[in-house]
Write a protein that binds this DNA or RNA. Structure first.
Lengths: 183, 183
DNA sequence: AAAAGCCATTAACCTGGATTAAGTTTTTGG
DNA sequence: CCAAAAACTTAATCCAGGTTAATGGCTTTT
């Protein structure tokens, strides 16, 4: 994806990767920690979210297989983060530490390109979601969600979807059950 | 900022920059165009926004001096964009074309780093704003806005601020005038 | 200097979604 | 396999913020 590597470059990169398993409901990262790595999901699913002062969760991102996740603000500044990241299912991930990534950038500048492209794509995705949150109704945001994460609709508790699109679980339930004509 | 350059590198980079002036209310970019450049603001102020199907504007970004602006989605994919970009005041900008930027990346890989860091910072900013839109009241979003763009509060019409924080101009006006004790 | 817009304000009324508080079903961990 | 915890549903009530519309002050255009 995005760049092509020699076998040595691949091996060099792979030498920094750390494999890890996380059990359902366990935390990878909590508010107040300094986030020192990005995580790449191989199997299962992670989520990042914040908890507001009333105790409600707001989901920033789900990470099914193939997605990267981390508390970007904290990774960049190396200050304590504001997000939580935990596992929705038992999950297998690869960790890539910021300190290693900096070595990699120096040794193989091609990786700057790879992560630049990654960041630019993510940026465009968040801009699109923000516009959606400013201009669309709850139902339309739900439909967008279904388009973005088709694999997750079946396996995700409704309240997680509610926390992503920005409504209460009660409202989402009402919304889904009144489009349905009932005998 | 972010990287250090030799004088040759600086000159090489500068050779691609195109200076341009835009008059207040004129468009730099419109929905349906393919965005072929990023713009860097030297003086004045630009804004990017979308128009929803009811005709309401939603501001994605303001760009006072020192900020970059563009329709990221369109720049990446080179497909027609969904945003509008216009000038709030008479504005001086520098254009950097995507096609030139690709040459620059190849010639001086350091620039990959520069724009990676730029994209990562922007990404963290949008994540933060999204969390705010999910968890904060209109008044708190207004206060955040004042913190983010202190230089703009005075010179920006209220309806633009409303379109950024996600409320109607009528509601913003009500909100601002009822905290104030009158006589 | 009249006309035409644009912007801010105010006020009465409306509504999408929140809150609260049950009750029911499903999941899960032991 | 069972008890407890999560997750989902329903319904009544409430409210932040939207809608509509009228008014008056600026600014721009002619």
């Amino acid at each position: 994806m995005h760049i092509s590597l020699t076998t040595e470059e691949e091996a060099y990169f792979a030498s920094f990767l750390q494999y890890k398993n996380i059990r359902r409901k366990q935390f990878l990262f909590q508010e107040g920690d300094v986030n020192k790595f990005q995580a790449f999901v191989i199997e299962g699913c992670l989520r990042s979210y914040s908890i507001d002062r009333s105790g409600f969760e707001h989901v920033l991102q789900f990470a099914p297989p193939g997605w990267w996740i981390g508390d970007m603000q904290s990774i960049i500044t190396q200050q304590p983060g504001t997000l939580y990241i935990d596992a929705i299912d038992d999950t297998a991930i690869i960790l890539l530490f910021k300190s290693d990534l900096e070595k990699i950038y120096t040794a193989v500048p091609k990786f700057e390109r790879f992560f630049r492209i990654l960041a630019e794509n993510a940026l465009a995705t968040y801009q699109h979601r923000l516009i959606g949150n400013l201009s669309l109704s709850a139902k339309e945001r739900y439909e967008n969600f279904c388009r973005l994460y088709p694999s997750l609709i079946q396996c995700l508790p409704q309240k997680q979807i509610a926390a992503y699109i920005g409504v209460t679980p009660e409202f989402l339930s009402k919304m889904l059950n009144q489009g349905t004509a009932k005998k």
